[in-house]
Simulated scan of single mutants.
Amino acid sequence: MTSVALGPTDQLDPRLLEHRRELTGYCYRMLGSAFDADDAVQETLVRAWRGLADFEGRSALRSWLYRIATNVCLDQLSGRQRRALPMDLSGSPWQPVEASLAARRPGTAWVEPVLDRQVLPEDADPAERAVIRESIRLAFIAALQHLPPRQRAVLILREVLRWKADEVAQLLDSTVASVNSALQRARATLAAAGGVLDPRPLDPDDQDLLDRYVEAFERYDIDAFVRLLHEDATQHMPPFEMWLRGASDIGAWMVGPGSACRDSVLIRVDANGSPAFAQYKPSQDGGRLPWALHELEVSGGRIAHITSFLDLDNGLFRQLGLPARVD
């Protein structure tokens, strides 16, 4: 047998490590959390290292790693409630007032963000990259959480990663008929939850919109900011349950309870296949500290939705590898 490890577990062969990014993307779709995905991939690589004697090259290394990763994710999901986004929990928008912040849930309740660079392959062709980018959008990830874990695995492997039915059946120790049946049920559930894959490249004209978004936010010109939004634009701010609908209510929030964001700076990143900005809010010592990761949905030349992941415990930016401070 040809070994794929180099002694200690912290010296894994590059042939194992070269699959880390795509495994992270797979585990993220399964678990809805970049942090849980990182843990799952670490566990996958450890199990792979420990199981080398049983591997013996009987299957492709990549397929074997996906089998391990699937089992790790299924173990993590056992008995766990699905992650969600605030708009999934309440059919009615909240009022843009301070009292709306009273309802808050722990981070484990929410779908969490991921940076594109953590999961998107560098060598994919443009068409494949567009599908993969769409498959990490927040709406799709939230819809995936409605599926039972094994159906989730089947759909991701078949629809996103383009595995053949017999390959998925072998990975899950199942049959082709069972895989096809699970895929059919998963597609129906996903469509009802709004999780249809529809690759949408960012229009070149949208870059001007994003530039104006940054300019309006950093100047805290709320009138200009509101003009960039659709009339029925929405916003939510995990870990709070509240969500807002309507450009006027979003503007009212920003000049009211959210006014402490004045004098912030935004740094462009790409997250969940969407344009995003890391917001740094002024601190008492004159610098700026992490506050929120804003992910935008653009439609028809305006902002349709804003997801603001608040970094209330100073852990989100650190775990995403974003700067801890802007001076």
Rank of each mutant, 00 (worst) to 15 (best):
G194H: 01
G258K: 00
R302W: 03
G79W: 00
R227S: 09
P199M: 02
N71Q: 11
S3K: 13
V269S: 00
A139R: 13
R21K: 09
D313L: 07
I303V: 15
E134P: 09
F317T: 11
P121A: 06
R150E: 13
G286I: 01
V176T: 11
D38P: 01
S59Y: 12
W243H: 05
D221Q: 05
R15E: 15
R67A: 14
I222L: 11
Q207M: 06
G256C: 03
A247H: 03
N180W: 05
G32R: 03
S63N: 13
N71F: 04
L155S: 00
E295L: 14
R227F: 01
G195D: 00
P238T: 11
D10A: 04
W243A: 04
W163S: 09
L138Q: 14
W49E: 12
M1G: 15
R29C: 01
P238Y: 09
P257M: 06
L138T: 14
V298A: 03
D10S: 12
A216D: 07
L101S: 05
L138W: 07
Q235F: 02
S264W: 00
P282Y: 12
R200N: 12
Q11P: 03
G79D: 02
G246Q: 11
R302S: 15
D221R: 03
R268F: 02
E215T: 14
L6I: 06
P149V: 03
D54A: 15
P113C: 05
N314S: 15
E134N: 14
D173K: 11
A53R: 14
D221T: 02
R227M: 08
S274K: 08
L171P: 04
